[in-house]
Simulated scan of single mutants.
Amino acid sequence: MDTTPNTKIWTDLDLDAEGKQIGYFRLPLAVHDRSGDDVGYSFEAIPVVTIRNGEGPGVLLMAGSHGNEYEGQIILMKLIRELRAEDVRGRIIILPGANAPAVRADRRNSPLDDGNLNRKFPGDPDGDPTSMIAHLIESELLTRVDYAFDLHSGSLSIEYLPCAVVARPSDPDRMGDALDLLRAFGMPTGMIIEHSTGGNRALIGACRRQNVQHLSTELGGGGGVSRAAIDIAEHGVMRLLHHVGVTRRPLTERPPLDCRLLKRVPSWDYIYAETSERGLFEPFVGLGDRVEAGQTTGLIHFTTAPWREPQPVIAKSGGVILCRRIPARTGLGDCVFVLGKDWTS
């Protein structure tokens, strides 16, 4: 694909060619001197792999929308090295570091424009760098596929109970397909969200506009890499690819785990700190634990007045702990736990 009227990002790859191709999308950047004047151009390299073998479904695999979420990037890099063209029936496009500037800088958002890729769709071919990447994904990649699997983790400040995630489809008749994806992925926890956090500006919004089925993950977080989450999720990705028919044979013999289905509660039912003075949060519960309304989930201890009684943090709603705040230093308005409830159709 050369530069087209649809996008200013270019690549030497033919996205529709048969076989396995490895290369880059090139995101054009202006270079400025110290006075701020343009002195030339460079590009940011976004790694991409395409695998095509005859007719069949199309799948986009993504990670690195947020640069400091690591498990998905590792899973897709391993898959890139293992997949062969003869394994595929149809088309697979892999973006292991979709927001390449954020990946390079080891940041959630791009250092070029502070852009959060998962809040930039549908993007803009003439916009800031992150908007250009979002536009490329929606206009050039999603239009070529039937499924998009987007691998996320918690950021530096959040750790998730590892789970696969689908949003409730706008078409009720497609709910069964979404649940089938969760069960094929086969993680111990599957989460159904009623509304995407980013709405139409997130990848899920782009997928709905392009009639592409979507599944994402949350695989740990906290600035580290969860060995257990990678082990479960990489086999889940392999099962998904075979489930949707884009691989000719199963890539793993490991069966899916039984999947407990949860729905995320509304944000007003999360558990928040409600003390005006910042202190150290001591949690009493952890990921996967069930809490009841009115339960004390932890205490905030005040380092400036160590003799003061600690402030309890009370759950206003019951549910299962889906994710937790990592930094111990906590104050008014900080979310310490996100909850999920058992899903019923």
Rank of each mutant, 00 (worst) to 15 (best):
E159D: 13
E71R: 01
I74Q: 12
E82I: 00
P96H: 02
A148E: 00
H152C: 08
L181F: 08
I94A: 08
H135G: 10
C163W: 00
A102N: 06
A63E: 04
L136D: 03
L142T: 06
R104S: 13
L76W: 00
I93M: 05
L95A: 07
G72E: 08
F185K: 13
D114Q: 13
V88A: 10
F185L: 10
N118R: 09
L141Q: 04
A63C: 05
G198E: 12
D150I: 02
H66W: 05
A164W: 06
G127Q: 08
I74H: 07
M175W: 00
F121S: 08
E138P: 05
D171A: 03
P162S: 10
P111T: 07
S110V: 01
D180G: 15
R89D: 03
A100K: 01
T143R: 14
Y147H: 15
V165H: 02
V145F: 08
A102G: 11
V88M: 11
R89W: 00
M175P: 02
N200D: 14
R174G: 00
G176N: 14
A148D: 01
N68M: 11
A164H: 07
E194T: 11
L136Y: 02
L151H: 08
A98W: 01
M191H: 00
D124G: 03
E71P: 10
D180P: 07
L182M: 11
G127Y: 01
H66C: 12
M77L: 12
A148P: 09
G127V: 12
Y147R: 06
M187A: 14
A134W: 06
T143E: 03
L61F: 05
A134I: 09
Q73C: 01
L95D: 02
I75A: 09
M175E: 14
L151T: 05
R84P: 00
I93F: 06
D146H: 15
I137N: 04
S110I: 01
P96L: 02
D124N: 15
R81D: 07
H135A: 10
R84F: 00
H152I: 03
D114F: 11
R174T: 12
F149T: 01
L61C: 11
A105M: 09
D114T: 07
E194H: 12
A100N: 09
M187Q: 14
D146W: 06
P125Q: 10
D106H: 09
D126Q: 13
S131T: 12
G115H: 10
H135Y: 12
L112I: 06
G123D: 03
G154E: 14
S196E: 15
A164M: 06
I92M: 09
N116D: 15
S110G: 12
N109L: 11
T197E: 14
I133D: 03
I92Q: 06
A148C: 15
R183H: 15
E82C: 00
E82W: 00
G123W: 02
I92W: 07
I74T: 04
S196V: 02
S131P: 08
I193S: 06
L156H: 13
R183E: 14
D114W: 04
A102R: 08
S65M: 14
G154D: 13
R81A: 05
L142C: 04
E82A: 12
I133N: 04
D146V: 12
L112F: 02
G154A: 13
E194I: 00
L203I: 01
L161V: 04
R119L: 07
